[in-house]
Amino acid sequence: MKKSQEEQLENQDIEIRLLIQAIFDKYGYDFRNYSQAHIKRRMLNRFHLSGMSSISQMIHEALCNHKFVDQLLMDLSINVTEMFRDPAFYKAIREHVIPLLKTYPFIKIWHAGCSSGEEVYSMAILLKEEGLYNRTQIYATDFNPVIIKQAKEGIYPISRMKDFTLNYQRSGGKASFSDYYTANYESAKLLDSFKKNIVFATHNLVTDSVFAEVHMVVCRNVLIYFDRKLQDKVISLFADSLTGGGVLCLGSKENLQFSGYYDNFDGLVTGERVYIKKYKV
C-alpha cells in the first residue's frame, strides 16, 4: 500500500473519532459505541455533500452551527423503515403474541428506536384488528427529536402506500388497508384514531434509563448498529423494563445468544427473534 494512502486513512479515522467525541461532549448524543464502519460511511457521505474542506471543518461546524448538527444527527439516525416491514414478523405477532396479550386487562408496549413511526402504526393497526388497541398504551421513542415529530404526524408519501399495502396483506391483514389513512395529493395521513393511545417521546437508549414497566418491547434493527458492550447495556435496559412473561421483539438478524442476558429469556417463535422474559432466572 502507498504510504500516503495509509496515512490519509489513519488521519481520517482520527478526525471522525474526534467529530463523534465533539458531538457527545457538546450535545450529549453518544455514538462512540456504534459500528465504526457504519459511522464512517455516514460521516464521509455528509462530508462529500457538504463541500467542506476537511472533516476537521465539520467538527468546527458541528460545534458552532446547530443546523449542521441537526443534519449530522439525521445522518446518524436509522431512518429506513416501512409499514409492516418483514411481514412474517407481524404474522408471528398475530399468531403467537396476541393470544398472550389478550390475557392482560391493560397492555403497555414500548417501541424503542421507532424512527418515523411506520412500524408503530403497523402495530397499532394490528392491535385494533385484534380488539386490543383500546386497552393498550404504546410508548414510541427515538433519540432524534426531528424524527419523533415526523412520527407524531404520521404522514407518509402516497407513493409508498402500494408497498405498505402489499406488506400488510402478506402479514395476514384482511381488511382494506386504504381505510386506515386519508389520501391527499402527494401524501397519506394515518387516521387519528390510531394515534390516541400512542405517546411519542424522545428517549436515548445509550444514555437514558428505564421509564416504565411494560409488557412488550419492540426494538428492531437498532441493536445491529451497536457494539457488543452497548448491545448488552441496552438489552439489560429492556430486561429491566419488562414484566415477567413480557415479550421482547428484535430484528430478524439480531440475536440474544451472545448477550449476557440470554438466560433471562426464552425463545417464543421459531425463525423470528421474539423472546419471553422468564419470571425467575
Partner: peptide, 21 residues
Amino acid sequence: APPNYHLLVEPDQTFTLTVDE
C-alpha cells in the same frame, strides 16, 4: 450477505449488518 441488509467489515475485521438506504 443476507437479503435486504448491507454487509460491512469493521476495522477489527468483524461483520456489521445495516438497513441503511
